[in-house]
Design a binder for these strands. Structure first.
Lengths: 274, 274
DNA sequence: ATTTTTCTTATGTTCGAAATTTTTGTACAA
DNA sequence: TTGTACAAAAATTTCGAACATAAGAAAAAT
């Protein structure tokens, strides 16, 4: 059954790391469920299209229906899971079209945000950009696509860098939307890179591009920084798009059993007269 | 207490209006709760900052905690309500800064979307733009700020017009974000107009501006259409900003009175400390 | 043989209560 | 008067069961 409510501790899942302010523990099971489900969707442990049934989720995560439902509802609002009333949740499907749309819109929003941040950012903004760039550069993307933990650490730093780039007062909505799109893009990136040889994954020199963007930004060279940023996005997109076909849409082994091998032979015509 | 689960009908709240495909009834209580809460927040029936406690919500809407919680969770993702773990929900506060941010970002996203739609839109897009403009123009903004139903009808058509303007394949994320911002802006607009004399509310000739935008759009005059659109947004913003101070942040009278007139006065003892 | 109907099973939804946390109120001490 | 400790009250969160719907299978009918 579900984890008893009695012990509300040990939810963090990792060492609190005394010095760093990161990794706050979840306050509620709902937040914990959100964290775990999001992690498993972004990593591909839960494959696109996979039906998310409460019975299985309760077993998998040792949580009750209520917190799981809350987490799924939140993930649905970020379009990481799809939802249809009375018919439940599923991991959101992926498509080449959406990959393009997400990348392009994220690029558009980030580019405009960067221009604003360069115009209005203060010394703290500069410091945050440089600091997060440094942390990111010191954390190479792990070669093994199986090393989930290391990848997730890199992704966290990567997202933080992009956030800091555009962070400035009065941009909370833009930051919010960019954060959602960043998550979306992460799922595509990881799904595609997972299918590739380890060396190929580091072929593009994203580190160098990040560095150039950050330097142009703190030097207040708006046009150059934005141009580098847009090129960064389009380069990423072209690279992933070229590899998109390799995606095997089968469910990963670690995940739940793929029950979808039934050939749907029925087209129910409902003559419903309320 | 809460409405019994037995009868799953009569949720629509309005006549299905045989000819029109609008107004689908809610399939679940969760959707119903979302519809009602959203309506009451956008209209100001629930004032910004108001604490949303389950006990009161259950009484007010005659729904159980589970569907209410689901609705609040969704509204929180759209930032119409704020949420803090273990401390509950509240109607999101408003601020002049956010009004500007919402308006400007909505303008930015819509402008770029309009340019794309003009470049890629087909005859159906044109037809939808013209049709929704027509419907909107035939529905004048009601003079009385108390006529919630008429206002909500106008708002629906207004949102549909803005949606159709940028609707094109491959824009679902943009449409989604614009829809969220449109809701946000609606709340500000209604909160401010509510404080004004009836005549002043129609001072700006938004109808005319909508018409000009739509005409330029279907004539494929990108630059002109986008310029008109941006001016439309900045005009609206300036107008509302000038009136922002009139906002009385006190809770509206309609506040938390139980609108359900069921005679069950078993415990009418409601601690009205607000 | 195909469609429709009916029944059974599986799954999502919602309720009422229990468990946990936060807030409030009060007594006591510095 | 201010601050702290602690008990009581209120609110949120979560569970387990009951309810309602959807999906699937079997039976009946055209």
């Amino acid at each position: 059954m579900a984890r008893q409510q009695t012990k509300r501790n040990d939810l963090s899942g990792g060492a609190p790391a005394s010095g760093s302010p990161e990794r706050e523990a979840s306050k509620t099971f709902g937040e914990e469920a959100y964290r775990l489900l999001r992690r498993d969707i972004l990593s591909g442990r839960l494959a696109p299209g996979h039906k998310l049934q409460f019975r299985q989720l309760v077993q998998r995560y040792d949580l009750g229906i209520a917190p799981l439902r809350e987490a799924l509802s939140k993930l649905a609002s970020e379009r990481l899971v799809s939802f249809e009333g009375q018919r439940g949740f599923a991991v959101a499907p992926i498509s080449r079209e959406e990959l393009h749309e997400v990348s392009n819109l994220w690029s558009e929003l980030t580019a405009a945000g960067l221009r604003i941040a360069i115009a209005k950012g203060d010394a703290d903004w500069e410091a945050d950009v440089i600091a997060s760039l440094h942390r990111l550069s010191r954390t190479p993307l792990p070669a093994s696509p199986e090393d989930y933990e290391a990848i997730e650490n890199w992704e966290r730093l990567h997202a933080q860098f992009h956030t800091n780039l555009i962070a400035c007062p009065g941009s909370s909505w833009r930051e919010h939307f960019c954060s959602v799109l960043c998550d979306q893009f992460e799922r595509y990136r990881r799904a595609i890179l997972m299918q590739m040889a380890t060396s190929a994954a580091t072929a593009r020199q994203v580190d160098k591009e990040h560095k150039q963007i950050a330097e142009a930004a703190v030097k207040r060279e708006s046009d150059r920084a934005v141009q580098l940023l847009v090129d960064h996005f389009s380069g990423n997109l072209a690279y992933l798009d070229a590899q998109y076909d390799r995606l095997s849409l089968q469910a990963h082994g670690a995940g739940l059993q793929p029950k979808v091998r039934t050939a749907s032979k029925t087209k129910s015509k409902v003559a419903e007269t309320a």
